[in-house]
């Protein structure tokens, strides 16, 4: 078994280290001129991101396509949600029409914000395809130097291979700014057992293939924090969301942000689920029209932190 895993890992490393560029199929869209971000009308929790911190979110926007983008009452909520975060990793963009995300970002920026995006290729084994995206506030965040890529998966272990992108906080000097890599994933709900094991390999491969020690895997994992498989057994692994539900029906936990607490000491210990029903005064039916998931988020220092203090000791982070 060890040999088999190592062989697959090697394949991933080869891609990450050497072959990322040829598989790169991400588009970088022009960024609107910098401007002050619009203040969120409703805070995420008791307050907006503390000074010197950033908030990273993950959001499965169920069947994000032309039907949804044609509903202004839904899109206004989605745009407001996006403006609450510095980066939001989106899953389930399901449309052949490639104007869906640009139109969404235009709406986010309509009030003067300055968000930009990265979008991955359409992925999936059937005619139903999904795209991942990162939408980020370009006033506060910039892309890192490493090119974004889709993880190569020669053995087809994952239904929708993660996209990985590197980012840096703007403002602090480059040598002090928090830099990190995000791996955006939506697992296949019928194969979470094998996919969570494969994601452990992906996590380690991404970690080892780059000088960047802060790797955050985030998305719709389709499992709670106790069923992370080998991913949850990696040394130092921390999950930001714990002991709650993340679906709109408030029955299951699916979504999380996972990282190595030994390295990502920038995590402030603040994380949560943005309950759209409570925050926007929606009925469950109205919230389900937006998505069957709520966004999940975690807060990190804007400054790179020397490794030393284990996040594992912080009370609001789950540790395996």
């Amino acid at each position: 078994m060890l040999r088999s895993i190592s062989a697959r890992l090697l394949a991933l490393l080869l891609f990450v280290g050497c072959d990322a560029a040829p598989r790169l199929s991400l588009e970088r869209e022009p960024v609107a001129p910098p401007s002050a971000p619009r203040a969120s009308s409703i805070p995420v929790d008791e307050g907006s991101a503390a000074a010197g911190t950033i908030r990273i979110a993950s959001y499965n926007i169920q069947v994000f396509g032309t039907s949804k983008i044609g509903k202004p009452h839904v899109m206004d909520i989605l745009a407001d949600v996006a403006r609450r975060f510095d980066i939001i990793a989106i899953q389930e963009i399901r449309s052949i029409d490639q104007t869906v995300l640009p139109r969404f970002v235009d709406l986010i920026n309509a009030g003067g914000a300055s968000y930009a995006y990265l979008i991955g290729p359409r992925l999936g084994r059937t005619s139903s395809k999904e795209q991942y995206a990162f939408v980020y506030n370009s006033d506060r965040i910039e892309l890192g130097q490493a090119p974004a890529y889709t993880v190569n998966d020669p053995e087809d272990l994952l239904h929708r291979e993660p996209i990985v992108a590197s980012f840096r906080v703007r403002g602090p000097s480059p040598e002090r700014a928090f830099t990190f890599q995000l791996a955006n994933i939506h697992t296949d709900p019928d194969e979470t057992d094998t996919e969570l094991d494969a994601l452990a390999e992906v996590f380690v491969a991404v970690q080892r293939a780059s000088a960047e020690d802060d790797v955050i895997l985030l998305g719709d994992l389709n499992v709670d924090e106790y069923n992370l498989g080998r991913l949850g057994q990696l040394p130092g692994i921390v999950y930001a969301i714990s002991g709650t539900t993340t679906n709109t029906r408030r029955t299951r936990m699916y979504d999380n942000l996972v990282f190595d607490g030994r390295f990502t000491a920038e995590f402030t210990g603040r994380a949560g689920v943005l309950d759209l029903i409570a925050e926007y005064g929606l009925t469950e039916a109205q919230a389900l029209e937006v998505s069957d998931h709520f966004p999940v988020w975690a807060e990190f220092s804007a400054l790179e932190t020397e490794v030393g203090d284990l996040v594992a000791e912080r009370p609001s982070a789950g540790v395996r």
Binding site: S67, S95, I96, T126, S128
Partner: peptide
């Protein structure tokens, strides 16, 4: 397409 995608979402 959108019928297919919502049907798949329901099946999932």
């Amino acid at each position: 397409e959108e019928v297919r995608e919502y049907a798949v979402a329901a099946l999932e």
